[in-house]
Each structure stands twice: as C-alpha cells, then as structure tokens.
Amino acid sequence: MPDLRFNHYTIKVKNLDISAAFYVDVVGLDEIKNRTEKPYIRWFSIGEGELHIVEGDTSRIQTTVGLHLALKTSDLDGMISQLNSKNILLHDSSGTPHSYTSRADGVRQFYFQDPDGYWIEVNEADSVEG
C-alpha cells in the first residue's frame, strides 16, 4: 500500500477576505504563502497540513455537522474562551447549542461554524490519558 498522509483540505467561500480573517482571528490559523499565486485562493497552516480557501459560487454547497474539519488542542478551555470572546456559538455533535460534550472515551469536544456554514470540531484528543 502507498504511504498516504494528509496534505490539505479545500473549501469554497463567498468572500475570501471575510473567511481569511475568520480563520486567522477566530480559529487562530497562520496564513502561509499561496504557491498557486491565484488571487482568489488563500492558504493556511494546520499542523503538518493546510487549509485552502477558494472564493467562488457557494450556492450549491450544503453543510451538515456530520461533515466537518476536526482540529485538536491541548487547551480546550482556552479555545472555548477565545470563541466566546468572538461571540461564536458552540454546538454538540448533533448541531445543538452546547458549550462542549464528552465522548465515551472522555475526550471533550465542541463544534462551531465558519462564515459560510462549514462545521469545525475542536477536541482535546491527545491530552486525555487512556
């Protein structure tokens, strides 16, 4: 079998500047050089991978909490505070407003949406002993 590893995740957005600001100021991602140099695309670092946002027609895109980008942190409480300070509503895995939930394995997690309705999960998967 080939050695596959995560490279990037791409989403289409209505407004490139609004979405870029959200991913930097709210989520806390670092913007990196867009090697395509196309003005309607911006890139962000996610650990060893990347998030690419592409401005374009989003009218046919439907979102659901069951299809989401998952990020992990060692400071879930700090991330909750960060999102609360930006008035971002947190949800559980069913999309119901909730501060956070705990999975059966004890990992705390929550979900929230970006300006285009894409769902993002944040969890503390590596910080829980088991």
Score class of each variant (00 low, 15 high):
residue 1 M to V: 08
residue 2 P to G: 00
residue 2 P to S: 01
residue 2 P to T: 10
residue 3 D to Q: 09
residue 3 D to H: 09
residue 5 R to M: 02
residue 5 R to Y: 08
residue 5 R to I: 08
residue 8 H to I: 01
residue 8 H to N: 07
residue 9 Y to Q: 07
residue 9 Y to L: 03
residue 9 Y to G: 03
residue 11 I to C: 03
residue 13 V to S: 00
residue 14 K to C: 01
residue 16 L to S: 02
residue 16 L to Y: 05
residue 16 L to M: 05
residue 17 D to M: 06
residue 17 D to E: 00
residue 19 S to C: 07
residue 19 S to L: 00
residue 19 S to H: 00
residue 20 A to L: 07
residue 20 A to H: 03
residue 24 V to S: 09
residue 24 V to F: 09
residue 24 V to W: 05
residue 26 V to I: 13
residue 27 V to M: 03
residue 28 G to K: 00
residue 29 L to F: 07
residue 30 D to C: 06
residue 32 I to R: 01
residue 34 N to G: 03
residue 35 R to I: 05
residue 35 R to A: 03
residue 38 K to F: 15
residue 40 Y to K: 03
residue 40 Y to N: 11
residue 43 W to A: 06
residue 44 F to T: 06
residue 45 S to W: 03
residue 45 S to K: 15
residue 47 G to P: 08
residue 48 E to Y: 11
residue 48 E to T: 13
residue 49 G to P: 13
residue 50 E to L: 10
residue 50 E to F: 06
residue 50 E to V: 12
residue 54 V to T: 14
residue 55 E to T: 04
residue 55 E to P: 12
residue 56 G to L: 10
residue 56 G to P: 12
residue 58 T to D: 02
residue 60 R to M: 11
residue 60 R to H: 08
residue 63 T to G: 04
residue 64 T to R: 11
residue 64 T to K: 11
residue 65 V to I: 14
residue 66 G to L: 11
residue 67 L to M: 15
residue 69 L to D: 12
residue 71 L to P: 12
residue 71 L to Q: 09
residue 74 S to M: 12
residue 74 S to N: 15
residue 74 S to Q: 08
residue 77 D to E: 15
residue 77 D to S: 13
residue 79 M to Y: 15
residue 79 M to C: 12
residue 80 I to L: 15
residue 80 I to T: 14
residue 81 S to Q: 15
residue 82 Q to H: 13
residue 84 N to V: 01
residue 86 K to F: 14
residue 87 N to L: 08
residue 87 N to F: 07
residue 88 I to V: 15
residue 89 L to N: 12
residue 89 L to Y: 09
residue 90 L to H: 10
residue 90 L to Q: 11
residue 90 L to A: 10
residue 92 D to L: 07
residue 92 D to W: 01
residue 92 D to Q: 09
residue 93 S to L: 05
residue 93 S to N: 06
residue 94 S to E: 12
residue 95 G to P: 14
residue 96 T to L: 13
residue 96 T to H: 11
residue 99 S to V: 14
residue 99 S to T: 15
residue 100 Y to E: 12
residue 101 T to V: 09
residue 101 T to W: 08
residue 102 S to W: 07
residue 104 A to D: 11
residue 104 A to P: 13
residue 105 D to W: 12
residue 105 D to S: 11
residue 105 D to Q: 09
residue 106 G to A: 12
residue 107 V to R: 05
residue 109 Q to T: 05
residue 109 Q to R: 00
residue 109 Q to A: 06
residue 110 F to M: 03
residue 113 Q to M: 03
residue 113 Q to P: 10
residue 113 Q to N: 11
residue 115 P to A: 01
residue 116 D to E: 01
residue 117 G to K: 05
residue 118 Y to T: 04
residue 120 I to T: 11
residue 121 E to T: 05
residue 122 V to G: 01
residue 123 N to G: 07
residue 124 E to M: 02
residue 125 A to P: 05
residue 126 D to E: 14
residue 127 S to D: 10
residue 128 V to P: 05
residue 128 V to H: 02
residue 128 V to T: 05
residue 129 E to C: 06
residue 129 E to P: 09
residue 129 E to K: 10
residue 130 G to V: 04
